[in-house]
Design a protein around this nucleic acid. Structure first.
Lengths: 345, 345
DNA sequence: TTGAAAGCGCTAACAA
DNA sequence: TTGTTAGCGCTTTCAA
């Protein structure tokens, strides 16, 4: 199976009549090594096709040079953007990435955390699953001093470092916009209120309503899992409401797109009968008709920020404890699905 | 930083007055160890919070227990499905995954290959970038006997193991379907013809046309990069054709969706004026209106098949050389965007 | 600026 | 069924 023998630093040392220590130092660009020697060593290394053995080096250094990422799902635009951002930063710094996804299951998230702990990641970036109830499974990391940064779905009360957007403000903005368009009976569709992101969007929604002196029945609060299926369900529930709502804030573009299609098929006009605002600025939001107003959620930037801070901490440049919460800007993008007045106000 | 000292097999050995070798064997479920001893060892390991050091074990075994994956893009539904399939299989077998993506760039693909080679992956699963011209960068893997399986975008002539769908047949089916619906002037939008997938879809398209005795002008062959942007471009190009085409086979759902929207905004009726068929069965194809006919592309299954075969080979159960090409079934899904006759034929 | 030598934690050949 | 021992390839302390 193994055709060519692997070249080690000893092979290089032999060839040059130097010690393995010198080779190691040279290949790691140690400043103590003579520049000429360094060059000779690097040339020979290249010539022989040397590749360094990370296992040996990691074993010796007691570092994995690896960052673990736990996310709740692979299939959303938002997640892949975050991953792209993380990857960009970690790659630049020569770190590897292990990506684990929980499929929104508490058990899988716990298994992933355990697994990454055993893999000895040097740091962790995580977004909680829909179901997660506590952070006990991250305890081993804290005990070993392995830094964790949470993003998007975080636990708010605790002393963890987190990168988030202001979901409260986003929820407020989206709802306020619908109110400004003349909506008075606004439905909200959101996720598990245990998760900060959904809870805060919900609070922002309620605040905007309260501020405008609007009251809506309790059954206008639709708590869903934001799957494809729930898009259909939401549409059915809305269609049964009498009188019909005149606006809906659906905190996920994909669910909103499905719901919109279903509503249209039942003769509802968007935005004339019901104005819609989604969430995430998924690529789908531009394609549906009418195009979907939404909250832009800068996933790539979140990933970059999370990774940058984690690496800074690992390299001893910053102390995460001094930095509890980083808030990334998000903004409302107004498109056709919410423009009742036919114009921006 | 490091609060708790790491537990090694020596700590367990000391505590139980056994040798490290026995501990190692027990923890690896070696059958030679006494069942009771094994239980005692495992209990103590758990009690002390032992976690095995993969670096030491990998270094010793000269195996990384890691599979590398090179893909051209993270952001498509198809890719995430493939990854999900690969992950499912590799996780079951206790293998790690390193995922690298080339963003369709030849240079990045080469860098990724080099990187994964240095990381000493035990096997590689790859889909070529848009730009890739040759497979030289995979040569080191072959020289070291590291198995590679290509999927989706592959190089056809060579003696490589590959998992693909029958793109020729899919292209033929899609085009034939449009012809059956009465289309006579059918445009094709496809990607770089150097890539087998696009080339074969194109060949299938031409074959179906030829069989039906239809001829179309050369400018009906639109070779694009299948980006969002190209969706707009295609629509503009189609709108300028006189007389207008009456069908279009757009070999990517996302591009097709954008193009459809653009055409509709210029007053073209789908499917009455132009019937459309996409490719991939992306989730978007169900949401656009009219819903998009497409080719179902079973990404998850492809991932599972590729990973299963790779692992079988690594474990010495099969010889990849005996298995050159694995073809996965795909099928035409007929939706509203291509039903001129208003019914399935 | 370079070298000698120890050891990171584990596995496997060989011995008992 | 268990133990002894060597060594995987690298980094680093101490010495020169």
């Amino acid at each position: 199976m193994q055709q060519k023998k692997d070249i080690t630093i000893y092979d290089i040392a032999n060839k040059l009549n130097l010690s393995s220590a010198t080779i190691s130092r040279a290949l790691n660009d140690s400043p103590v090594i003579n520049v000429k020697t360094k060059k000779r060593i690097k040339d020979v290394a290249k010539e022989l096709g040397y590749r360094q053995n990370n296992f040996a080096s990691n074993l010796r250094k007691q570092k994995s040079n690896t960052i673990g990422v736990i996310i709740h799902d692979l299939k959303s635009n938002f997640t892949t953007s975050v991953l792209t951002g993380i990857e960009k930063i970690t790659t630049e710094s020569g770190y590897d990435l292990i990506i684990a996804h929980s499929s929104e299951s508490k058990e899988k998230e716990i298994a992933n955390a355990t697994n990454l702990f055993h893999k000895r990641v040097d740091g962790l970036i995580a977004s909680l699953s829909f179901e997660t109830e506590n952070l006990d499974h991250f305890q081993p990391f804290y005990e070993k001093g392995i830094p964790i940064i949470f993003f998007d779905r975080v636990e708010e009360g605790l002393e963890t470092t987190k990168v988030i957007i202001d979901n409260y403000r986003a929820g407020y903005q989206a709802t306020k916009h619908l109110i400004d368009q003349g909506c008075k009976r606004i439905v909200i569709v959101t996720g598990n209120l245990k998760r900060n992101v959904y809870n805060n969007r919900f609070k922002g929604y309620k605040e905007a309503l309260a501020e405008a002196g609007l009251e809506v029945p309790k059954d206008f609060f639709l708590i869903k899992d934001l799957s494809e299926q729930s898009g259909y369900e939401v549409a059915q529930q809305i269609l049964k409401m009498k009188p019909l709502p005149d606006g809906a804030f659906i905190t996920n573009d994909f669910t909103a797109a499905i719901c919109m299609k279903e509503l249209k098929q039942h003769g509802i006009r968007i935005p004339e009968d019901i104005a819609l605002v989604g969430f995430n600025n998924d690529s789908i939001s531009k394609i549906v008709e009418p195009s979907l107003s939404t909250i832009n959620y800068p996933g790539m930037l979140m990933g970059e920020v999370a990774a940058t801070n984690l690496l800074n901490h690992i390299n001893g440049n910053t102390d995460l404890k001094q930095m509890n919460t980083i808030i990334i800007n998000s903004e409302l993008i107004i498109r056709d699905s919410s423009l009742k007045s036919g114009k921006l106000l």
